[in-house]
């Protein structure tokens, strides 16, 4: 998965325009990113990343896109 694809995934999960998604995006800055929105992100990631997601810990506690990027990159799941 690329960062661009991740932005698209987060945008679709939260049902917000992709233009609103950037490296600064977080639960504080996007109203739609509540716990329900976060579940949607996790659900979409599990579909897109398949079995790779099982070895990734800590996504549930991420409150920002930079946190998600950091975890996925360290697991080798993001280019």
């Amino acid at each position: 998965m690329t960062e661009k694809e991740l932005f698209q995934l987060v945008s679709e999960s939260l049902e917000v325009s992709v233009e609103k998604i950037n490296l600064e995006s977080s639960q504080d800055k996007i109203e739609e990113w509540d716990s329900l929105g976060h579940l949607s992100i996790l659900s979409s990631l599990s579909k897109d990343l398949g079995d790779g997601i099982k070895n990734v810990k800590g996504l549930g506690n991420c409150e920002s896109l930079s946190c998600i990027i950091k975890i996925l990159k360290s697991a080798g799941l993001l280019e």
Partner: peptide
């Protein structure tokens, strides 16, 4: 309950154990 944290646990350790 922190739903996303619980889901993160299920997606990780639980599914791995069961598999």
């Amino acid at each position: 309950m922190n739903g996303p944290e619980v889901v993160d646990f299920v997606m990780g350790e639980v599914v791995t154990d069961i598999e």
